[in-house]
């Protein structure tokens, strides 16, 4: 669906159903350099089960126009505005990787709008490897190869995508490479590297929160994910074994099952 946020053309996947602002809304926020396409194995399920879904493309990403936002704070604020732009008062938020920082910021800035928060492959800070950061800022495709290497667990490196015929290392890499790398991945990596509010915000969160962590995540290590979850009062934590950072693809079914239980409990359809 195309709509405008702050006057700029924005795209969000609605999971294959027409958007209905009267249904409970779940907003999915992608990670660095990526787009709505990473969420397809979670969004369609909810969209066909009574929820409204928006897997947004952040400005300058995927099918959204505009320039990439430069800080996590701006991105968090933008997600709050996007919820308002579609005429909704409240939403559940689901973030992956950088999207976890963005959704936490969104809760901090728009607390009344957010009902529940799900963090996948998150950490309270995502400092970047300096070499990877500069490769991304130079639009060097090697940055994407390194990202795909780090993002997939040892099992994920062999493939085994849940959707027959898809090879997930190259799917992720093409989503990033179909944009100018420095304008999306480069900007995003820099924003992650600069962001320092994570621990403070996490300690003050006061809403139902779920963390889904990959036991073999090399982007945001399991121990860092657990530290973040420990900051958050009453956070549910699920660790997926044999899984890296891309749990939403590597172990899409398990991820969906965990998310389903959490959403149905904390943001049920009335």
């Amino acid at each position: 669906m195309k709509f405008k946020v702050r006057g700029i053309d924005t795209f969000a996947s609605t999971g294959g159903r027409p958007f209905d602002k009267n249904k409970p809304l779940i907003v999915f926020v992608h990670g660095s350099g990526l787009s709505h396409m990473v969420w397809v194995l979670q969004t369609r399920y909810f969209a066909f089960r009574g929820y409204s879904v928006l897997a947004v493309d952040l400005p300058g990403h995927g099918l959204s126009s505009g320039e990439s936002l430069k800080t996590i704070e701006e991105m968090g604020n933008w997600v709050g505005d996007a919820i308002e732009a579609v005429g909704c008062k409240q939403a559940s938020l689901v973030g992956h990787s950088q999207g976890c920082l963005v959704t936490m910021e969104c809760v901090a800035q728009h607390s009344k709008k957010i009902k529940t928060l799900t963090l996948m492959g998150g950490a309270s800070a995502i400092p970047m490897n300096p070499e990877l950061l500069s490769l991304a800022e130079e639009s060097n495709p090697k940055a994407v190869d390194l990202m795909m290497d780090f993002a997939h667990g040892p099992a994920g490196h062999f493939g085994g995508h849940p959707v027959p015929g898809l090879y997930h290392l190259n799917v992720g890499s093409m989503i990033v490479q179909n944009k100018e790398i420095k304008d999306t991945l480069g900007v995003d990596f820099r924003a992650c590297d600069n962001y320092k509010n994570g621990p403070e915000i996490a300690k003050n969160l006061n809403l139902p929160t779920l963390s889904i962590l990959g036991a073999q995540d090399r982007m945001c290590r399991l121990k860092d994910g657990k530290i973040l979850a420990d900051y958050i009062k009453g956070s549910e934590v699920h660790v997926i074994e044999n899984c890296g950072h891309m749990m939403l693809l590597e172990e899409a079914d398990q991820t969906l099952e965990i998310l389903k239980k959490f959403i149905l409990k904390n943001d049920p359809i009335k």
């Binding site: 194995l41 369609r44 066909f48 849940p162 959707v163 898809l166 899409a252 969906l256």
Partner: peptide, 8 residues
């Protein structure tokens, strides 16, 4: 059937 999840 509805391509909501992967599988055979």
């Amino acid at each position: 059937f509805n391509l909501e999840r992967g599988g055979h």
